[in-house]
Design a protein around this nucleic acid. Sequence first.
DNA 1: GTGAAAGCGCTAACAT
DNA 2: ATGTTAGCGCTTTCAC
Lengths: 344, 344
Amino acid sequence: MVTINDVSRRAGVSRSTVSRVIADNGYVSEAKRKLIEAAIAELGYRPNTMARGLRSNRSNMIGGVVVDVASPFYAQMVGGMQKAARAAGKSVLIASGYADQAEESRAIIELIDRSCDGLLLYLENPIREDVADIIRTSRTPVVTIGGDEYPVARAAVRIDNFTGALEAMRLLLAQGHRHIAYLSGGLMYRDTRDRLRGIRAALQEKGLTIDDIYVEHGDFEERFGVAGTERLLASGFPVTAIFAGDDDVAAGALLALKSAGKRVPEDISLMGFDDNFHARHLTPSLTTVRQPVDEAGRVAAQLLIKILAGQVPEQAEITIEAPLIRRDSVGALVSPPGRKEFAG
Amino acid sequence: MVTINDVSRRAGVSRSTVSRVIADNGYVSEAKRKLIEAAIAELGYRPNTMARGLRSNRSNMIGGVVVDVASPFYAQMVGGMQKAARAAGKSVLIASGYADQAEESRAIIELIDRSCDGLLLYLENPIREDVADIIRTSRTPVVTIGGDEYPVARAAVRIDNFTGALEAMRLLLAQGHRHIAYLSGGLMYRDTRDRLRGIRAALQEKGLTIDDIYVEHGDFEERFGVAGTERLLASGFPVTAIFAGDDDVAAGALLALKSAGKRVPEDISLMGFDDNFHARHLTPSLTTVRQPVDEAGRVAAQLLIKILAGQVPEQAEITIEAPLIRRDSVGALVSPPGRKEFAG
DNA sequence: GTGAAAGCGCTAACAT
DNA sequence: ATGTTAGCGCTTTCAC
């Protein structure tokens, strides 16, 4: 292994000078710099990150916690983080928190112990107090994505779930739907609560309340879409539009609707959330709300990088729009002849 | 920051003894172990990974290179790696190679420089000779996934693209299709070449050759599926079945077929490859070949972990089956009355 | 502008 | 079974 000593000998200078050239700080004469750079190239020297990190207490590594890298949603987010990090010459170390507080705590501590310079956190649970202490003690800057106001965060990036759900619900209402079912995610998620606020706001504009629609809480899984829709159809509620918790749930709902012989959107309209890859490929293509997750990851990483560089971001809270994507699964309500529209 | 010195003082022993307890090697009396563990707990001591890594030249970190973490396909693979790594108390540092040799080289070098104990490589290009040298010099064990025989690899995991494509093609042929189009990936990919071999083998069983079918090479993108299918339909080739390079290409092909007014599978059958999430949700649901990528990632990581533990895996080459998943997009060829089946 | 010296926190020979 | 010792490769005062 070639070390800084080899380079300094080869170039006929001290290690300190070589170090200055590598870190590109401090004064070095042009002549010596050339000499050193030549020696580095000839020897193929690459600094030892461990030694460097031990001494300087910096790793050039950013830590990221997401729910699960294996899921397309978070994978995109990680992709955004990586892009921004790489542009700044940093790497991203990813740990999955699996929406479990103990796992999330473990993930955070692991990243700190690996000397990550800063943390990007997408959590599903509040930060445990002992973990918050570790973050504070290590003075690791944290940027949260989509999270509640963690006391430890220096900045936060959010996707505007409220407005996204508001617009989605407005569309359903504008299309004449009044018997709407919301197959919601769990209330423990901030996203769910934000979306419910948006739904309520849209309902209020029409003089309605949340009690005027059908709401069931489940998880963000396709099978909940199937089961929830089956229960909904069995309930007797004269549903004309289903708002699914996300596109996976919508895919499940669509499956259940088809096997029940319901046409979408002629009999029942369907709204998703996320705009996954498959949203465009469902038949009919899914009207949904796009969550620009990769952008969220990128913006969060950029914020963190700024903070790491000692700058104070002019905006510590950034909200990213979640635009409504109109496709074919939502249609206008047409009263079939003889049907009593507002009965039931 | 609490160091090993603090622990040793608190427990009234030397640093070495503390170190032995942490690493769980060497002899330590039960009494002192208890004392030391108590001190560790009281002080909340967590070893400094940098110092540890510098000294021991091990990081407990596995490096993984995939084409792009942001894509669902590789995200699943990374998920598999993480699962296996975590079970062994290791972390995974991921770098994307973007199917570009320079990027792949950069990724590998970065992971080595970050002192990864071993590497999991899914590459799209041969390893550059200078990079192979770096791998050898650093003596970093490498396990490849889906790769050509890299000279540096200690073990390799592959998905059986040959048999997968063979079975897929057999199905199309068994259903009576003879005018088949293959919207292939590029020949620079090993996967593509393996699949073509499978296709040839299936054709040969029927006394046919690759020249009897329509082949176009493109990339694994939806838009290639659209454009390739449009060209195919315009070509006058009396196609009855399309075998798409992967499910994304199939999704594009389906779009193009629908806008051309073709019914699937009544007019034209469609076969995919990968079994992405959306394969089930296309209409009709896509008959395809499943690539168990998460399993590939997991198995590769397990192999590497074994090698890192000094064991020699009984099998240095593991092939994972790629089973045919029969759904609704492939149907039997029915000669329309008066149609000359084998003309054209 | 450059070099000498000290030491980051830990492990692993070696000695006892 | 435990302690002593000597660094791992690098950065960073501090002199000059």
